[in-house]
Simulated scan of single mutants.
Amino acid sequence: MSDTAPRQNGPRILVGATGSIAVTTLPTYLAALRAHLGGTCTVLMTHSATAFLPAATVAIHADRVISGESPADWPTDKPSRLAAEHDLCVVLPATAHILAAAATGAAPNRLATVILSARYPTVFFPSMGAAMWEKPAVRRNITQLRADGHHIPDPVWHDAYDVATKSISHHPTMPTPADVAKIIGELLSQQA
């Protein structure tokens, strides 16, 4: 294990945070993961995720936070090293963009490159608008990711007020923090 790897007992979870408004709930999910699973949580934030939630805020709830794409960080935050230092990669929330990148083997950012570098499946928790979720391209990407061995639990549908349209919208989002922790715990026990 490297000097930057978490050294506590329990699972080493790498949480990929993407640019969805749902990322603002990430601290609650991190608290649930830690309470139910123990171990350590490293959060890898995409550039767009930090537009919704500052990395400094996430750092209060995680063992380590990585954000940005600077090549200067690669000696310690190289994608293959990050993948190897963790037991599971969880994308929370998973946008249509990261699903497409992972399904096609693209690497437009460090998170997508980590997913490609990992020798274990990634767990994606989608959150997006209903119109996006229902697009044939998104459905194809989900089918491909599942065929490739990744895990994509079905999202939970809920109503939320949409400020732009001034109406209630019904859209898919992530399960509750407790349910996410349970799903991840079950997947980790299958890996053991």
Rank of each mutant, 00 (worst) to 15 (best):
H170Y: 09
P27D: 02
H61M: 05
P6S: 12
W157I: 00
P93K: 09
W74K: 14
A94F: 02
A51N: 13
V90C: 13
A83F: 04
R34W: 06
A181P: 00
A137K: 15
P177E: 08
W133T: 00
A147Q: 10
L88F: 08
A94Y: 03
A112F: 06
A137C: 09
Q190L: 15
T40D: 08
H150M: 14
G19Y: 04
A35Y: 12
S169A: 14
R119D: 14
C89G: 15
N9L: 09
F125L: 15
V114M: 04
V163R: 11
L82S: 05
I60D: 05
S2K: 12
V65Q: 06
P172I: 00
E186P: 03
H158C: 08
A31I: 13
A147L: 00
S20I: 04
T18L: 04
A22E: 01
S167I: 04
G129C: 13
R81H: 04
V58G: 08
R139Y: 02
K166N: 14
K78M: 15
S20L: 01
M45T: 10
L145C: 05
N9K: 10
V123E: 03
E186K: 07
T76W: 07
P54R: 11
G149S: 10
R34F: 04
T42D: 10
A103F: 09
P27M: 08
T18K: 04
A35S: 15
A32R: 05
P11A: 03
N9C: 05
I13K: 10
S70T: 06
